[in-house]
Structure formats: C-alpha cells, structure tokens
Amino acid sequence: MDDDGIIRLFWDRDERAIEVTAEKYGRYCGSIAGNILKSPEDREECLSDTYMRAWGSMPKDWPRALSAYLGRITRNLAFNRYKEARAQKRGGGEVSLVLEELSECVSGTVEGECDRRELARAVNSFVQGLPEGKRRVFVRRYWYADPVKDIARDNNMRPDAVSKTLERIREKLREYLTERGFEL
C-alpha cells in the first residue's frame, strides 16, 4: 500500500493502519530504535509506542514523508527511553558513542542551551550545505545513530575514512555555530 493509502487508514480510524505501518516501516523504525536502545524489550515497546503515537497524531497531520515522520517519532521516543535507562544506569546502544562524539562539539554545560528553533535552523542549514556524500555520512551517524561500519559498507568507504570524515564535519559544525554566535 502506498503512503497516502496508509495515512488515509489512520485518518479513517481504521485499525489496519497499524498493521500495514508495521509491515512497511517496522524494520526501518526498528533499526532506529535498535541503534538507540540496547534492550530488545525496550525496542519492541518503543515500536508499539511509535504506532500509538502515530495513531494519536495522524488525524491532525498528513505527513509529507511518512517514513521520516515515523522515524522521527521513533527516534524521539527511543531517545527519551534511553535517557530514562541511563538515569537508572542501564546504558544504551550505539547512541552512547554518538553522544560522546557530539560532546566534542560542545562545552558540556547546560547554560549554553540557546534558542532551540534558531539552533535547529542553523544545524539544518549547515547540513544542507555539505556535499551529498558527507551529508549522508553525517546524517546516518547523528540522526540514525548508525554504526560506523554500516555507514562505511553502504557508502563504499573504509570505516576509518568514515570516522575521519565525521571528525572533520564535527569540527566544521563547531566552527559554523560559533561563528554564528551560538554558545556551545
């Protein structure tokens, strides 16, 4: 079924919407949850929560891109679960490494948390300005939290080249945001 058909099911409050969504996007959302959450039970719950969240939000929204819409819900829910798990010292998956890398771009203090919308716009603009190959690598790592070896495999690169590329982009992001007055 195409995406508009699935969205129509959500809008019509047809429960097949969840079944069809799980069939088409379960694996995609599952990989996002899996990169962030270590426990298989947490991942499964996160997926169920994703479908429920979509069920609750879809009569209002008609997503332009259903995959990104669902992926974003999964990412947010998984990351909230990750934070709860970490507070209970149960740790997380690949995302722990991703957060360590991102911490190199910032001071690590909470005082500098500037206007979220402005910062999101600046980060978006920075990412848009990257050459396509680098943008893919960067987004795979810091949006999907994909492991470096998977990114390397899918982009015909060596893992050490991926790591080096990410390091350079992080440094450029830091410069870009600092030049624009963001307190990192």
Binding site: E101, V106, V110, R116, V123, W143, L184
Partner: peptide
C-alpha cells in the same frame, strides 16, 4: 550545551535530508 541536546536538535533535520 550538551551532546544530548545537540543530538535532540539533529532530530529536527529536514525530512528530505
């Protein structure tokens, strides 16, 4: 700013990207 906060901000990248 923390790495966690930056990760959350990354979550707002455009759908197409």
């Amino acid at each position: 700013m923390t790495g966690e906060y930056l990760f959350e901000i990354m979550g707002e990248l455009d759908d197409d990207t």
